[in-house]
Design a protein around this nucleic acid. Structure first.
Lengths: 216, 216
DNA sequence: CAAAAAACTGTACGCACATACAAAAATTCA
DNA sequence: TGAATTTTTGTATGTGCGTACAGTTTTTTG
Protein backbone atom coordinates (compact mmCIF):
# COMPACT_ATOMS: atom_id res chain seq x y z
CA UNK A 1 0.00 0.00 0.00
CA UNK A 2 2.63 2.44 1.01
CA UNK A 3 4.79 1.90 -2.01
CA UNK A 4 1.88 2.00 -4.36
CA UNK A 5 0.95 5.16 -2.56
CA UNK A 6 3.70 7.04 -4.31
CA UNK A 7 2.05 6.44 -7.60
CA UNK A 8 0.19 8.84 -9.78
CA UNK A 9 -0.84 8.83 -13.38
CA UNK A 10 1.49 10.91 -15.48
CA UNK A 11 -1.31 12.71 -17.20
CA UNK A 12 -0.04 16.19 -16.48
CA UNK A 13 3.36 15.17 -17.77
CA UNK A 14 1.90 14.24 -21.12
CA UNK A 15 0.33 17.61 -21.76
CA UNK A 16 3.31 19.56 -20.50
CA UNK A 17 4.35 22.45 -22.64
CA UNK A 18 7.89 23.04 -23.83
CA UNK A 19 10.03 24.45 -21.08
CA UNK A 20 13.43 26.02 -20.79
CA UNK A 21 16.22 23.94 -19.38
CA UNK A 22 16.38 26.20 -16.32
CA UNK A 23 12.69 25.86 -15.67
CA UNK A 24 12.94 22.09 -15.77
CA UNK A 25 15.96 22.18 -13.52
CA UNK A 26 14.38 24.48 -10.97
CA UNK A 27 11.21 22.44 -10.91
CA UNK A 28 13.23 19.32 -10.34
CA UNK A 29 15.21 20.95 -7.55
CA UNK A 30 12.08 22.19 -5.87
CA UNK A 31 10.38 18.83 -6.11
CA UNK A 32 13.38 17.10 -4.60
CA UNK A 33 13.56 19.71 -1.87
CA UNK A 34 9.86 19.20 -1.21
CA UNK A 35 10.51 15.50 -0.96
CA UNK A 36 13.21 16.00 1.64
CA UNK A 37 11.04 18.37 3.67
CA UNK A 38 8.07 16.01 3.39
CA UNK A 39 10.07 13.07 4.67
CA UNK A 40 11.47 15.05 7.55
CA UNK A 41 8.49 17.12 8.67
CA UNK A 42 5.45 15.32 7.32
CA UNK A 43 2.69 16.87 5.30
CA UNK A 44 1.63 19.52 7.79
CA UNK A 45 5.24 20.59 8.29
CA UNK A 46 5.87 20.92 4.59
CA UNK A 47 5.64 24.70 4.24
CA UNK A 48 6.56 26.63 1.13
CA UNK A 49 9.19 28.53 3.04
CA UNK A 50 10.89 25.33 4.16
CA UNK A 51 10.78 23.87 0.68
CA UNK A 52 12.41 26.94 -0.86
CA UNK A 53 14.97 27.04 1.90
CA UNK A 54 15.80 23.37 1.38
CA UNK A 55 16.25 24.11 -2.32
CA UNK A 56 18.50 27.06 -1.51
CA UNK A 57 16.18 29.58 -3.12
CA UNK A 58 14.20 32.56 -1.99
CA UNK A 59 10.82 31.96 -0.33
CA UNK A 60 8.72 33.36 -3.14
CA UNK A 61 10.19 31.23 -5.91
CA UNK A 62 7.67 28.45 -5.47
CA UNK A 63 4.77 30.44 -6.82
CA UNK A 64 6.84 31.29 -9.89
CA UNK A 65 7.38 27.69 -10.95
CA UNK A 66 4.28 26.07 -9.49
CA UNK A 67 0.64 26.93 -9.20
CA UNK A 68 0.78 26.29 -5.49
CA UNK A 69 1.81 23.93 -2.79
CA UNK A 70 -0.47 21.14 -3.93
CA UNK A 71 1.10 21.29 -7.35
CA UNK A 72 4.50 20.56 -5.83
CA UNK A 73 3.14 17.74 -3.71
CA UNK A 74 1.64 15.92 -6.64
CA UNK A 75 4.77 16.39 -8.69
CA UNK A 76 6.71 14.97 -5.78
CA UNK A 77 4.44 11.96 -5.57
CA UNK A 78 4.98 11.32 -9.26
CA UNK A 79 8.72 11.42 -8.76
CA UNK A 80 8.63 8.99 -5.87
CA UNK A 81 6.47 6.62 -7.78
CA UNK A 82 8.83 6.54 -10.69
CA UNK A 83 11.71 5.70 -8.39
CA UNK A 84 9.96 3.14 -6.26
CA UNK A 85 7.74 1.27 -8.67
CA UNK A 86 10.75 0.27 -10.75
CA UNK A 87 11.87 -2.09 -8.00
CA UNK A 88 8.46 -3.64 -7.57
CA UNK A 89 7.91 -4.10 -11.28
CA UNK A 90 11.37 -5.62 -11.71
CA UNK A 91 10.66 -8.13 -8.96
CA UNK A 92 7.29 -9.00 -10.44
CA UNK A 93 8.82 -9.63 -13.85
CA UNK A 94 11.40 -11.99 -12.44
CA UNK A 95 8.74 -14.03 -10.68
CA UNK A 96 7.79 -17.29 -12.37
CA UNK A 97 5.28 -18.96 -10.04
CA UNK A 98 2.30 -17.25 -8.49
CA UNK A 99 3.88 -17.68 -5.10
CA UNK A 100 6.93 -15.79 -6.35
CA UNK A 101 4.63 -13.00 -7.43
CA UNK A 102 3.05 -12.90 -3.99
CA UNK A 103 6.49 -12.71 -2.41
CA UNK A 104 7.52 -9.99 -4.84
CA UNK A 105 4.49 -7.90 -3.89
CA UNK A 106 5.07 -8.29 -0.18
CA UNK A 107 8.80 -7.67 -0.37
CA UNK A 108 8.17 -4.70 -2.61
CA UNK A 109 5.93 -3.20 0.05
CA UNK A 110 8.75 -3.07 2.59
CA UNK A 111 11.79 -1.55 0.87
CA UNK A 112 14.65 -1.47 3.33
CA UNK A 113 15.55 2.14 2.60
CA UNK A 114 11.97 3.36 3.07
CA UNK A 115 10.54 1.37 5.93
CA UNK A 116 11.42 4.02 8.49
CA UNK A 117 9.45 6.20 10.90
CA UNK A 118 9.91 9.37 8.86
CA UNK A 119 8.63 7.86 5.66
CA UNK A 120 5.85 6.01 7.41
CA UNK A 121 4.76 9.22 9.09
CA UNK A 122 4.77 11.08 5.82
CA UNK A 123 2.59 8.37 4.33
CA UNK A 124 0.25 8.55 7.32
CA UNK A 125 0.01 12.30 6.86
CA UNK A 126 -1.43 11.86 3.41
CA UNK A 127 -3.74 9.04 4.53
CA UNK A 128 -5.14 11.36 7.15
CA UNK A 129 -5.46 14.32 4.81
CA UNK A 130 -7.24 12.25 2.19
CA UNK A 131 -10.36 12.31 4.32
CA UNK A 132 -10.90 15.97 3.52
CA UNK A 133 -8.87 16.54 0.37
CA UNK A 134 -10.43 14.97 -2.72
CA UNK A 135 -7.11 14.96 -4.54
CA UNK A 136 -5.47 12.80 -1.91
CA UNK A 137 -8.54 10.62 -1.73
CA UNK A 138 -8.34 9.95 -5.43
CA UNK A 139 -4.67 9.16 -5.02
CA UNK A 140 -5.45 6.66 -2.28
CA UNK A 141 -8.03 4.94 -4.41
CA UNK A 142 -5.56 4.49 -7.26
CA UNK A 143 -2.94 3.01 -4.99
CA UNK A 144 -5.36 0.71 -3.25
CA UNK A 145 -6.62 -0.67 -6.51
CA UNK A 146 -3.06 -1.20 -7.70
CA UNK A 147 -2.22 -3.37 -4.71
CA UNK A 148 -5.49 -5.16 -5.19
CA UNK A 149 -4.80 -5.92 -8.84
CA UNK A 150 -1.24 -6.99 -8.05
CA UNK A 151 -2.56 -9.46 -5.52
CA UNK A 152 -5.23 -10.56 -7.96
CA UNK A 153 -2.56 -11.39 -10.52
CA UNK A 154 -0.88 -13.63 -7.95
CA UNK A 155 -4.01 -15.45 -6.88
CA UNK A 156 -5.80 -15.58 -10.25
CA UNK A 157 -7.30 -18.97 -10.92
CA UNK A 158 -6.40 -20.37 -7.54
CA UNK A 159 -8.73 -18.62 -5.14
CA UNK A 160 -12.44 -18.09 -5.75
CA UNK A 161 -13.49 -14.41 -5.65
CA UNK A 162 -14.96 -14.53 -2.17
CA UNK A 163 -11.91 -16.15 -0.66
CA UNK A 164 -9.58 -13.84 -2.58
CA UNK A 165 -11.34 -10.84 -1.05
CA UNK A 166 -10.72 -12.26 2.41
CA UNK A 167 -7.04 -13.02 1.85
CA UNK A 168 -6.38 -9.74 0.07
CA UNK A 169 -7.99 -7.76 2.87
CA UNK A 170 -6.00 -9.62 5.50
CA UNK A 171 -2.67 -9.19 3.73
CA UNK A 172 -3.30 -5.61 2.64
CA UNK A 173 -4.59 -4.65 6.06
CA UNK A 174 -1.64 -6.25 7.78
CA UNK A 175 0.81 -4.45 5.50
CA UNK A 176 -0.85 -1.12 6.23
CA UNK A 177 -0.96 -1.89 9.94
CA UNK A 178 2.74 -2.69 10.06
CA UNK A 179 3.54 0.60 8.34
CA UNK A 180 1.38 2.35 10.88
CA UNK A 181 3.24 0.66 13.69
CA UNK A 182 6.51 1.71 12.13
CA UNK A 183 5.22 5.27 12.02
CA UNK A 184 4.83 5.27 15.78
CA UNK A 185 8.51 4.41 16.09
CA UNK A 186 8.13 0.71 16.80
CA UNK A 187 11.40 -1.03 16.14
CA UNK A 188 10.60 -3.35 13.26
CA UNK A 189 13.03 -4.56 10.66
CA UNK A 190 11.71 -4.71 7.08
CA UNK A 191 12.76 -8.36 6.87
CA UNK A 192 10.77 -9.12 10.01
CA UNK A 193 7.74 -7.38 8.53
CA UNK A 194 8.09 -9.34 5.29
CA UNK A 195 8.48 -12.60 7.21
CA UNK A 196 5.42 -11.85 9.30
CA UNK A 197 3.19 -11.13 6.32
CA UNK A 198 4.45 -14.23 4.58
CA UNK A 199 3.78 -16.28 7.68
CA UNK A 200 0.23 -15.02 7.81
CA UNK A 201 -0.18 -15.71 4.10
CA UNK A 202 1.03 -19.29 4.56
CA UNK A 203 -1.18 -19.81 7.57
CA UNK A 204 -4.19 -18.42 5.79
CA UNK A 205 -3.87 -20.55 2.67
CA UNK A 206 -4.67 -24.24 2.64
CA UNK A 207 -1.93 -26.68 1.65
CA UNK A 208 -3.63 -27.47 -1.65
CA UNK A 209 -3.91 -23.78 -2.44
CA UNK A 210 -0.23 -23.36 -1.70
CA UNK A 211 0.67 -26.22 -3.99
CA UNK A 212 -1.31 -24.60 -6.78
CA UNK A 213 0.38 -21.26 -6.17
CA UNK A 214 3.86 -22.71 -6.23
CA UNK A 215 3.46 -24.58 -9.49
CA UNK A 216 1.45 -22.03 -11.56
CA UNK B 1 -5.66 -0.35 19.37
CA UNK B 2 -8.24 2.18 18.40
CA UNK B 3 -10.46 1.58 21.36
CA UNK B 4 -7.57 1.60 23.75
CA UNK B 5 -6.64 4.78 22.02
CA UNK B 6 -9.39 6.58 23.85
CA UNK B 7 -7.76 5.77 27.09
CA UNK B 8 -5.89 8.02 29.43
CA UNK B 9 -4.92 7.83 33.01
CA UNK B 10 -7.28 9.86 35.13
CA UNK B 11 -4.49 11.54 36.98
CA UNK B 12 -5.69 15.08 36.38
CA UNK B 13 -9.16 14.06 37.51
CA UNK B 14 -7.82 12.92 40.85
CA UNK B 15 -6.21 16.23 41.71
CA UNK B 16 -9.15 18.27 40.43
CA UNK B 17 -10.21 21.08 42.70
CA UNK B 18 -13.76 21.67 43.79
CA UNK B 19 -15.81 23.27 41.09
CA UNK B 20 -19.18 24.91 40.77
CA UNK B 21 -21.96 22.94 39.24
CA UNK B 22 -22.03 25.32 36.28
CA UNK B 23 -18.35 24.98 35.71
CA UNK B 24 -18.64 21.20 35.61
CA UNK B 25 -21.61 21.48 33.28
CA UNK B 26 -19.92 23.86 30.87
CA UNK B 27 -16.76 21.80 30.82
CA UNK B 28 -18.81 18.74 30.05
CA UNK B 29 -20.70 20.54 27.29
CA UNK B 30 -17.49 21.82 25.76
CA UNK B 31 -15.86 18.41 25.90
CA UNK B 32 -18.85 16.82 24.22
CA UNK B 33 -18.88 19.57 21.62
CA UNK B 34 -15.17 19.02 21.03
CA UNK B 35 -15.90 15.35 20.61
CA UNK B 36 -18.50 16.03 17.96
CA UNK B 37 -16.23 18.44 16.11
CA UNK B 38 -13.33 16.01 16.39
CA UNK B 39 -15.35 13.17 14.94
CA UNK B 40 -16.62 15.30 12.09
CA UNK B 41 -13.56 17.34 11.13
CA UNK B 42 -10.61 15.39 12.53
CA UNK B 43 -7.87 16.79 14.67
CA UNK B 44 -6.71 19.53 12.33
CA UNK B 45 -10.28 20.70 11.78
CA UNK B 46 -11.00 20.87 15.47
CA UNK B 47 -10.69 24.64 15.98
CA UNK B 48 -11.64 26.45 19.17
CA UNK B 49 -14.18 28.49 17.26
CA UNK B 50 -15.93 25.40 15.95
CA UNK B 51 -15.95 23.78 19.36
CA UNK B 52 -17.56 26.81 20.98
CA UNK B 53 -20.02 27.11 18.14
CA UNK B 54 -20.95 23.43 18.47
CA UNK B 55 -21.50 24.01 22.18
CA UNK B 56 -23.67 27.04 21.43
CA UNK B 57 -21.36 29.43 23.22
CA UNK B 58 -19.27 32.41 22.31
CA UNK B 59 -15.85 31.82 20.72
CA UNK B 60 -13.83 33.00 23.69
CA UNK B 61 -15.44 30.77 26.28
CA UNK B 62 -12.97 27.98 25.81
CA UNK B 63 -10.08 29.84 27.37
CA UNK B 64 -12.26 30.58 30.38
CA UNK B 65 -12.86 26.96 31.26
CA UNK B 66 -9.74 25.36 29.80
CA UNK B 67 -6.08 26.16 29.65
CA UNK B 68 -6.14 25.70 25.90
CA UNK B 69 -7.14 23.49 23.05
CA UNK B 70 -4.92 20.62 24.12
CA UNK B 71 -6.57 20.64 27.51
CA UNK B 72 -9.93 20.04 25.87
CA UNK B 73 -8.57 17.29 23.68
CA UNK B 74 -7.17 15.33 26.55
CA UNK B 75 -10.33 15.79 28.56
CA UNK B 76 -12.25 14.50 25.57
CA UNK B 77 -10.02 11.47 25.28
CA UNK B 78 -10.63 10.72 28.95
CA UNK B 79 -14.37 10.92 28.42
CA UNK B 80 -14.29 8.58 25.45
CA UNK B 81 -12.19 6.12 27.31
CA UNK B 82 -14.58 5.98 30.21
CA UNK B 83 -17.47 5.26 27.84
CA UNK B 84 -15.73 2.73 25.66
CA UNK B 85 -13.56 0.80 28.03
CA UNK B 86 -16.55 -0.20 30.07
CA UNK B 87 -17.69 -2.46 27.24
CA UNK B 88 -14.30 -4.05 26.76
CA UNK B 89 -13.78 -4.63 30.47
CA UNK B 90 -17.24 -6.12 30.84
CA UNK B 91 -16.55 -8.54 28.02
CA UNK B 92 -13.19 -9.49 29.47
CA UNK B 93 -14.74 -10.23 32.85
CA UNK B 94 -17.36 -12.51 31.36
CA UNK B 95 -14.71 -14.50 29.53
CA UNK B 96 -13.78 -17.83 31.13
CA UNK B 97 -11.29 -19.45 28.76
CA UNK B 98 -8.28 -17.73 27.28
CA UNK B 99 -9.87 -18.02 23.86
CA UNK B 100 -12.88 -16.13 25.18
CA UNK B 101 -10.54 -13.42 26.35
CA UNK B 102 -8.95 -13.23 22.92
CA UNK B 103 -12.38 -12.93 21.34
CA UNK B 104 -13.36 -10.28 23.85
CA UNK B 105 -10.32 -8.21 22.99
CA UNK B 106 -10.87 -8.48 19.25
CA UNK B 107 -14.61 -7.81 19.47
CA UNK B 108 -13.94 -4.91 21.78
CA UNK B 109 -11.66 -3.38 19.18
CA UNK B 110 -14.47 -3.12 16.64
CA UNK B 111 -17.49 -1.61 18.39
CA UNK B 112 -20.35 -1.38 15.92
CA UNK B 113 -21.17 2.23 16.79
CA UNK B 114 -17.58 3.39 16.37
CA UNK B 115 -16.17 1.47 13.43
CA UNK B 116 -16.98 4.23 10.97
CA UNK B 117 -14.95 6.44 8.65
CA UNK B 118 -15.38 9.55 10.80
CA UNK B 119 -14.13 7.91 13.95
CA UNK B 120 -11.37 6.07 12.14
CA UNK B 121 -10.23 9.31 10.59
CA UNK B 122 -10.20 11.05 13.92
CA UNK B 123 -8.09 8.25 15.30
CA UNK B 124 -5.73 8.51 12.35
CA UNK B 125 -5.42 12.24 12.96
CA UNK B 126 -3.99 11.63 16.37
CA UNK B 127 -1.73 8.82 15.14
CA UNK B 128 -0.27 11.22 12.62
CA UNK B 129 0.09 14.09 15.06
CA UNK B 130 1.81 11.89 17.61
CA UNK B 131 4.95 11.98 15.51
CA UNK B 132 5.54 15.62 16.42
CA UNK B 133 3.48 16.13 19.57
CA UNK B 134 5.01 14.44 22.64
CA UNK B 135 1.67 14.43 24.43
CA UNK B 136 0.01 12.40 21.71
CA UNK B 137 3.04 10.16 21.49
CA UNK B 138 2.77 9.37 25.16
CA UNK B 139 -0.91 8.62 24.68
CA UNK B 140 -0.11 6.24 21.86
CA UNK B 141 2.41 4.41 23.96
CA UNK B 142 -0.10 3.91 26.77
CA UNK B 143 -2.73 2.55 24.42
CA UNK B 144 -0.33 0.27 22.64
CA UNK B 145 0.89 -1.25 25.86
CA UNK B 146 -2.68 -1.76 27.01
CA UNK B 147 -3.56 -3.81 23.96
CA UNK B 148 -0.29 -5.66 24.37
CA UNK B 149 -1.03 -6.53 27.99
CA UNK B 150 -4.58 -7.52 27.16
CA UNK B 151 -3.29 -9.94 24.55
CA UNK B 152 -0.64 -11.14 26.97
CA UNK B 153 -3.34 -12.02 29.50
CA UNK B 154 -5.04 -14.13 26.86
CA UNK B 155 -1.93 -15.97 25.73
CA UNK B 156 -0.16 -16.24 29.09
CA UNK B 157 1.28 -19.66 29.69
CA UNK B 158 0.36 -20.93 26.25
CA UNK B 159 2.74 -19.15 23.91
CA UNK B 160 6.44 -18.71 24.54
CA UNK B 161 7.55 -15.04 24.54
CA UNK B 162 9.02 -15.08 21.08
CA UNK B 163 5.96 -16.60 19.51
CA UNK B 164 3.67 -14.32 21.49
CA UNK B 165 5.48 -11.31 20.06
CA UNK B 166 4.84 -12.61 16.56
CA UNK B 167 1.15 -13.33 17.08
CA UNK B 168 0.55 -10.09 18.96
CA UNK B 169 2.19 -8.04 16.22
CA UNK B 170 0.18 -9.80 13.54
CA UNK B 171 -3.14 -9.36 15.32
CA UNK B 172 -2.45 -5.83 16.52
CA UNK B 173 -1.14 -4.79 13.14
CA UNK B 174 -4.12 -6.27 11.36
CA UNK B 175 -6.55 -4.52 13.69
CA UNK B 176 -4.82 -1.19 13.07
CA UNK B 177 -4.72 -1.84 9.36
CA UNK B 178 -8.42 -2.58 9.19
CA UNK B 179 -9.18 0.66 11.03
CA UNK B 180 -6.97 2.47 8.55
CA UNK B 181 -8.86 0.90 5.68
CA UNK B 182 -12.12 1.97 7.27
CA UNK B 183 -10.76 5.49 7.50
CA UNK B 184 -10.37 5.59 3.75
CA UNK B 185 -14.05 4.82 3.40
CA UNK B 186 -13.76 1.14 2.56
CA UNK B 187 -17.04 -0.57 3.15
CA UNK B 188 -16.30 -2.99 5.95
CA UNK B 189 -18.77 -4.24 8.51
CA UNK B 190 -17.46 -4.55 12.08
CA UNK B 191 -18.56 -8.17 12.19
CA UNK B 192 -16.58 -8.87 9.04
CA UNK B 193 -13.53 -7.24 10.56
CA UNK B 194 -13.91 -9.28 13.73
CA UNK B 195 -14.36 -12.47 11.73
CA UNK B 196 -11.28 -11.72 9.66
CA UNK B 197 -9.04 -11.11 12.66
CA UNK B 198 -10.35 -14.26 14.31
CA UNK B 199 -9.72 -16.23 11.14
CA UNK B 200 -6.14 -15.02 11.05
CA UNK B 201 -5.75 -15.83 14.73
CA UNK B 202 -7.03 -19.37 14.17
CA UNK B 203 -4.82 -19.84 11.15
CA UNK B 204 -1.77 -18.55 12.98
CA UNK B 205 -2.15 -20.79 16.03
CA UNK B 206 -1.42 -24.49 15.93
CA UNK B 207 -4.18 -26.89 16.83
CA UNK B 208 -2.52 -27.84 20.11
CA UNK B 209 -2.18 -24.17 21.04
CA UNK B 210 -5.85 -23.66 20.30
CA UNK B 211 -6.80 -26.58 22.50
CA UNK B 212 -4.79 -25.08 25.34
CA UNK B 213 -6.43 -21.70 24.84
CA UNK B 214 -9.92 -23.12 24.86
CA UNK B 215 -9.54 -25.08 28.05
CA UNK B 216 -7.53 -22.63 30.22
C1' DC C 1 -32.43 45.52 46.93
C1' DA C 2 -27.63 46.79 46.27
C1' DA C 3 -23.05 44.89 46.17
C1' DA C 4 -20.11 41.32 45.02
C1' DA C 5 -19.00 37.43 42.54
C1' DA C 6 -19.51 34.46 38.76
C1' DA C 7 -20.43 33.67 33.99
C1' DC C 8 -20.16 35.14 29.55
C1' DT C 9 -19.35 38.08 25.27
C1' DG C 10 -16.96 40.08 21.57
C1' DT C 11 -12.90 41.69 20.10
C1' DA C 12 -8.09 42.44 19.55
C1' DC C 13 -3.48 40.80 19.41
C1' DG C 14 0.17 37.91 17.73
C1' DC C 15 1.61 34.20 15.00
C1' DA C 16 2.23 31.08 11.00
C1' DC C 17 1.18 30.37 6.59
C1' DA C 18 0.15 30.52 1.16
C1' DT C 19 0.28 33.41 -2.32
C1' DA C 20 0.97 37.50 -5.29
C1' DC C 21 3.85 40.87 -7.06
C1' DA C 22 6.82 44.90 -7.79
C1' DA C 23 11.47 45.59 -8.08
C1' DA C 24 16.16 43.94 -8.85
C1' DA C 25 19.49 40.94 -10.87
C1' DA C 26 20.99 37.91 -14.34
C1' DT C 27 20.81 36.25 -18.81
C1' DT C 28 19.93 36.29 -23.64
C1' DC C 29 19.66 38.41 -27.96
C1' DA C 30 20.34 41.61 -31.93
C1' DT D 1 27.15 47.10 -26.02
C1' DG D 2 22.38 48.01 -25.01
C1' DA D 3 17.70 46.50 -25.08
C1' DA D 4 14.63 42.71 -24.17
C1' DT D 5 13.64 38.79 -21.70
C1' DT D 6 14.05 35.63 -18.14
C1' DT D 7 14.94 34.60 -13.53
C1' DT D 8 15.18 35.70 -8.75
C1' DT D 9 14.48 38.30 -4.62
C1' DG D 10 12.24 40.25 -0.78
C1' DT D 11 8.25 41.79 0.86
C1' DA D 12 3.37 42.73 1.25
C1' DT D 13 -1.26 41.07 1.60
C1' DG D 14 -4.82 38.29 3.26
C1' DT D 15 -6.41 34.34 5.89
C1' DG D 16 -7.13 31.38 9.71
C1' DC D 17 -5.85 30.26 13.98
C1' DG D 18 -5.15 30.18 19.49
C1' DT D 19 -5.35 32.92 23.17
C1' DA D 20 -5.95 36.77 26.35
C1' DC D 21 -8.78 40.14 28.27
C1' DA D 22 -11.61 44.30 29.03
C1' DG D 23 -16.05 44.92 29.38
C1' DT D 24 -21.02 43.29 29.93
C1' DT D 25 -24.56 40.46 31.66
C1' DT D 26 -26.27 37.21 34.91
C1' DT D 27 -26.38 35.09 39.28
C1' DT D 28 -25.48 34.86 44.06
C1' DT D 29 -25.07 36.86 48.53
C1' DG D 30 -25.76 39.63 52.70
Amino acid sequence: MCVQFFDLINETMAQARIRTRIEDLRRKELIEAAHRVFMQHGLSGMTTKRICEAAGMSPGILSYYFKGKEDVLFAMVRLNNRLLMEGVVARLKQATTRWDRLEAIIIGNFPANLFEPNVANAWLSVCTASSTNPGYARLQRVLYSRLQSNLASAFAGVLPPERFAQVALALGGLIDGLWLRRATGEHLHPDAAIALVLTVASALLTSTEQVLLRQG
